[in-house]
């Protein structure tokens, strides 16, 4: 798979470390979250067949974390964003 890095252009996916679903960015508020919310955040996944937003860490590159939208049934990548850009918007 080739990941089209927003800053570095097309890169081999082997340069990246896969970190899991992008929903991991939505961490519960440590001051108010219940144990049940932490359980759901830490252990439950949607695991869809189809488009999936997921985190790829460019360990062998600029060490940025990307949000890649990839179809899990075809491996086709349709969008790549910098996680820090998305995080700043929310």
């Amino acid at each position: 798979m080739i990941i089209n890095h927003p800053l570095l252009g097309p890169r081999d996916s082997a340069e990246f470390v896969y970190l899991g679903a992008a929903t991991l960015m939505d961490r519960p508020d440590p001051d108010t979250a219940t144990a049940e919310e932490w359980h759901d955040y830490g252990y439950l996944r949607d695991n869809p067949a189809g488009p999936h937003r997921e985190l790829w860490f460019h360990e062998g590159g600029d060490r940025s974390i990307l949000i890649v939208t990839r179809n899990t049934t075809t491996h086709e990548i349709t969008a790549v964003e910098l996680a820090r850009t998305v995080g700043a918007r929310t």
Binding site: S13, Y18, E54, T72
Partner: peptide, 12 residues
């Protein structure tokens, strides 16, 4: 190492 429902993998 990445989520997949395709019954095929990649070259790395």
């Amino acid at each position: 190492g990445y989520n997949s429902y395709a019954q095929r993998g990649n070259l790395p």
